[in-house]
Amino acid sequence: MNLTEQKIAFVLVVPLIAVAFFVNGYPIVQSFWLSLTDTNLSDLAHYNFVGADNYVNGLNDFFFQRSAIVSIRFVAETTAMVAVASIAIALVLNEKFRGSGLLKVIVIVPWAISEYAVGILGGFFLNANFGLWNGVLTNLGLIKGNTNWLTAQMALDWVAIFYTWNIAPLMSFFILTSLQTVPEDLYKMSRVDGASPFRRFRYVTFPFIRYALLIVLVLTTMAAGSATVIMYSMTLGGPGGATQTATYYSFVQFLQKRQLGYGAALSWYIFIFLIATTMLYFYLLTRRRK
């Protein structure tokens, strides 16, 4: 019995081990090795071992510090908006009403647009001259003339809003899937007991979606923490670096300045940040399970 269990696990997990170790493991090791050298993209064969120099330089790099703050703000804004939006959308989709089937199909569509195209759409929506947002607000009499929305203060918020618009639908599907595991009887019972909607959500629904919410939080943090493309297409990291995230900055080091070693070291800072955040979510959402 025990032996067959082992064998079955072996058969089922072998493809995974192959993928996880050879396709994920090796690049991770190599990227760590790169971060300890001064490898340049134009000459991969010649490099020196520099130890922790790249990491020390990263800490003292003003532009990296600025981009790290931008990243943290972007991750916080996006994660909060996605969590609220995905739960709200999932709760609506879980109800049965006329047109609910159609709404389920429509809701997923924003995720079918690539990040790059979302950036173009967002940038044009807010365009000071031709953008619809200015047009709507002017017609409502809220603003006069053409306002520039992508300023140093607001640009990042707008990118976060469009990023949320892009990924929240997918995340809501994860929540919806877990909502469907809530037994109907529990709802009926709590309704008979006269529980308020908020208490029903907190004590009946929430325990069932807790794990899905964890997945959503981690996925969103992961995606927002390494978001680069949408900034590139919407604001080019500007104005004045206001939307240049840490990944964007490491991307610049990698492919424009060709500093592979330095870029890799910066990526490892982001990696550590993401792992720490993920562990925090795990702690907050699974501590009361047992």
């Binding site: 082992q6 996880a20 994920n24 991770i28 390494s226 990696f271 993401l274």
Partner: peptide, 26 residues
């Protein structure tokens, strides 16, 4: 239940947290 299940599971998920830019060159 099999030996090494939990560490392996952890590793699979953690391996995805490294930003794509970092593993692009490897």
């Amino acid at each position: 239940r099999f030996r090494g299940s939990w560490p392996l599971f952890r590793f699979t998920i953690t391996s995805r947290l490294l930003p794509p830019v970092a593993v692009l060159i490897p």
